[in-house]
Structures are given as structure tokens and as C-alpha cells.
Simulated scan of single mutants.
Amino acid sequence: MKSLVRNALRSSWLQRAVGFLAAEFLRLVWLTNRFTFEPANIYELVEPRMPGILVFWHGQHFMAPFIKRKASYRAKVLISRHRDGEFNAIAAERLGIGTIRGSGDHGSAFNRKGGVGAFKEMVRALAENYNVAVTADVPKRSRVAGLGVIMLARESGRPIMPFAMVTSRFIRLKNWDRTTINLPFGRGALVGIKEINVPPDADAATMEKLRLDLEETLNEASRRAYAIVGRPEGADHG
């Protein structure tokens, strides 16, 4: 039975169907939630600094494609090569976001999971004027920012733009990253506090300081976003 389920999940037709349905459900969520932006002129502030590295916590990733408001905002998102990543990649591409496949992990499994190739592709995409979206977390360690994003900013010379994008109605799963499934017909918030720049000659101490800054900034953005929609951040549903 398990092998039948695995084979079904790997079938391209099912992956396409799930990705299509996920994209259209998320589109419904976006269209039926009334979003507040903080600051109110966030797009006017960010646009002159593009392309940027858009960073958010894993588990808050479903609404990220809708941060792209204009056709001129070209964007690609890093998505893992894991089976679940196939659904996410199909959904992202249907929503007009390009994909880069590989791991953001800079640990022992970095090479095996395609991390080196993905890193080079992200640097190239930024040089070609694409915004690049990536989760900050170290794999399987929720709300712990890894050095990968800091390394990408140092290599590319592009700013890190941390943000949180949440809705008032949601279901939160009890998995490692407490994935939030956003629901329609509520309120939403997009919060960006500041950009983080990494000097091209940043040493290990500077990079660790900026990593902690990124972690704190993402946590604060998340707290503010949930406060705006009037929901406790730690709740399992809204």
C-alpha cells in the first residue's frame, strides 16, 4: 500500500493536478483577503532597490508569490528537489514565478541536495535582474536563519529584503516548520521592516552578526503582521 501511495505521489499527472489546484486556491485566498501593507508605501521604497533577495520564514511561504504585483517584477523562488517541492514548483510557475531547484542548506548535505548549483543559479538570476525569493530557515530547524542567505547577498551584492505575509484565517500544521495554510475571506498583512546589506568583504564575525539581525528582523516582521490581522502568532488556527 505504501509503495502504491508513493508511486501515485510521484506521478506527473497527480503532481500537475495538485499544483494547479493549490495555485488556484491561493489565488482565491489572495483575492478574498483585505491586505494591509506596512509601511504603506513599501513598494515605492523597495522598487528602486530591485533586484533583491526576498526572504521569509519557511512555513509562511504560500502567499509569497503574491508579493509580485507588476509584470515587470521578475522573480524566481528556490524550491527543494524533494517530492513535496514538485507541487510547490508547479503552483509557483502557474502563479508567474520562476523556479530554482535545490537546497538552501549549507551544511554537510549541501552538495548532495544540489545546493551548489542552486546557489550559482541564484547569483546568476540576480545578475539578470530577477528578484530571488528564499526561505531563511536552516532545514528542519524552524525560525533559525542559516548563513546561506547572507552568503548569497555577499556574493551577489544585492540587498536582503526580509518580510512576513500572513492572513487572519489559517490552519497551522504540527510539523517542523508549523506550516501555515492560509484561508480565504479574512484580513491579510504584508510587513517589511528594513533591508539588510552584506559587504563584499564580510568576514565570519560580520556574517554571523548579520545572520542574527536577519533572524530578529523576520521574527519582528512576523509578530507585527499577526498583530495587524488581530491573531496570536502561536495559534494553531484562525
Rank of each mutant, 00 (worst) to 15 (best):
A8V: 09
I196Y: 10
T217G: 08
A235Y: 06
A136E: 06
P162V: 10
D213S: 13
V138G: 05
V77D: 00
R94D: 01
R187C: 00
A235M: 06
L54H: 10
P199Y: 09
G146H: 09
M50R: 15
E44P: 05
I90N: 03
A204L: 13
I228V: 13
R74T: 10
E215C: 08
V46K: 04
G148V: 02
E121A: 15
R172H: 07
E215P: 08
R83M: 08
A125M: 07
R154N: 06
G146Y: 03
A22C: 07
M151L: 13
Y226I: 00
R178V: 01
F110W: 15
R16C: 03
A136S: 14
I90V: 15
L31M: 11
I150G: 05
R49Q: 15
L78Q: 03
T217V: 08
E155G: 00
R101P: 00
L21W: 05
V5N: 03
A225P: 07
V55N: 03
E233C: 01
Y130C: 03
A118V: 02
P139K: 02
L214I: 07
G146W: 05
G98W: 01
E47W: 06
K70I: 00
L21H: 02
K68R: 15
M122R: 03
A64L: 09
L26C: 04
L214P: 05
D213G: 04
E233K: 15
T180M: 14
R154M: 13
M50S: 10
S12I: 03
R124C: 00
R231P: 00
R34Y: 02
F185D: 05
R158K: 15
R83E: 09
I196Q: 07
R141H: 14
R143F: 11
F25H: 12
A17R: 11
V123T: 10
R124N: 10
D177N: 13
G157F: 04
R101H: 09
E128M: 06
R69N: 08
A145H: 06
N129Q: 12
M165E: 04
V229Y: 04
Q60G: 03
M63R: 06
F25W: 14
I79R: 01
E195Q: 12
I42H: 09
M207V: 04
G114D: 02
N33M: 05
G85A: 05
R34N: 10
T179H: 13
A125P: 04
V149S: 03
Y130K: 04
W13S: 14
V166K: 09
E93D: 02
V134P: 02
P200H: 10
R94N: 02
Q15P: 01
W176S: 09
R178W: 08
F163Q: 06
G96A: 10
R211Y: 04
N7L: 13
A221M: 08
A118F: 01
A8F: 13
K174W: 01
R34S: 13
R74Y: 07
T217M: 09
D84N: 10
F185R: 04
V138Q: 05
L212N: 11
L173I: 08
R112Y: 04
G85C: 04
K174P: 02
S168P: 09
T167M: 05
P199K: 09
G19Y: 01
R141Y: 13
T135E: 04
M151D: 12
A127H: 13
V149R: 01
F110D: 01
H58R: 11
L173E: 12
W30T: 00
L210G: 09
S3W: 12
